[in-house]
Design a protein around this nucleic acid. Structure first.
Lengths: 208, 208
DNA sequence: GAAAAATATTGACTGCAGTCAGTTTTTCTC
DNA sequence: GAGAAAAACTGACTGCAGTCAATATTTTTC
């Protein structure tokens, strides 16, 4: 049977990830060498490269895993009846917390996620699609409740929120938005997105 | 007098930039080594590092220069009376063209610009401030013409547009938006931003 | 204009990411 | 279960980014 080999592969991958989390957290990403990492994981240097293409891939894989869990959890447990604005803020804020928990990790992850190398595209698109699949139902419900326009594609709506999230993270890295103001800033941006930047119609703004 | 030294410094910097443009264009960024670059510029390897902190800084400095010129030119010559939406599309599209002209350059530039390393923060913030100063007058005029809400901070408006621009570039790198659809996509996003994602008030949407 | 101080330049050196030819381990075949 | 085929593992090796102690050039001082 094809059992031992598969099992070992899982174990090795796990060992690399474990060692990576430990060392990256202790010494930082840059200061940890692949050779150290290999030693800590109890394998040879070359082996790492049959599991991950580059050093930062290891980090990225870890973040990706965390995010997938987080998103799944959030969308499963979310209260789907509260206003979509609050739902989106909640989802993106927990992503934000994960990213900003470790400044250095987060930067590499965001750089790779927002502007991925061509080599990583296939993987990236798959992750992104899964992500959209999680958000779409929430947005559809919101459309049904009349909170969102129905004449705009869901993909565009997701994109819109995501763009503003990118801005938030960018502004955090430049120091324009400090951690403690992030949530309020995101809410403000999302509210602006809902209401529009154009002039108020004479009937006044819709709220929330 | 403090002339010869200053002059030489200018010349050397220029020589590095020239050599960089040439080699990066011919062989690509990754394939060009600092040693080659130094030889092409007629200086020693170490000297490069007293002008730029890292290899990608050289690229970044080049892009930054180009963008500063471009923005100045655009905002000077722009027709300040056409709808703000068209103005913003024009400005960001020329930035987009510059970025996407060379995929690899552009990626590094965007990664650095959106999520800059802490070492580069001071420089980055200065550039960003200059950039805002160029856009603010355009937005203020638009507010006066009644095209933009006056109860939203200019910084938030700029941020909003910039976030959507980040999204566009990101979507281009993932292949979700092909080059030829970029302009229409950006216009759509910006229009959505103006109109809002929330439900249409009974009086109907404002147009443009 | 000579000696001293300040600044710029240099390339040999270090450390590490990533490769690859050779070796070991697992699976398949009869 | 022996021998062949396939897959995984390994660490010596390569190439390059970035450093730094030594050297060269420019400016300042008297």
């Amino acid at each position: 049977m094809a059992g031992i080999r598969e099992q070992k592969k899982q174990d090795t991958r796990q060992a690399i990830m474990q060692a990576a989390i430990k060392l990256f957290s202790e010494k930082g990403f840059e200061k940890t060498s692949i050779e150290e990492l290999a030693k800590a994981a109890g394998i040879g240097k070359g082996t790492i490269y049959s599991y991950f293409q580059t050093k930062s891939d290891i980090l990225h894989a870890f973040c990706e895993d965390e995010l997938v869990c987080l998103h799944q959890e959030l969308t499963d447990n979310a209260d789907k009846e509260i206003p979509i604005l609050q739902q989106m803020v909640a989802i993106y804020m927990s992503e934000f917390r994960l990213i900003t928990e470790n400044r250095e990790f987060g930067r590499l992850f965001m750089q790779q996620t927002a502007f991925p190398r061509d080599v990583d595209l296939a993987q990236h698109l798959e992750n992104e699609d899964n992500y959209f699949k999680l958000l779409f139902p929430l947005l559809e419900k919101a459309q049904d409740r009349g909170e969102l326009r129905k004449d705009v594609e869901l993909l565009h709506i997701v994109g819109h929120f995501y763009g503003l999230y990118l801005l938030l993270v960018s502004a955090w890295y430049t120091g324009r938005i400090p951690t403690e103001e992030a949530e309020i800033a995101l809410e403000t941006l999302f509210r602006q997105a809902m209401e529009g930047l154009g002039p108020l119609p004479e009937s006044g703004r819709t709220k929330n």
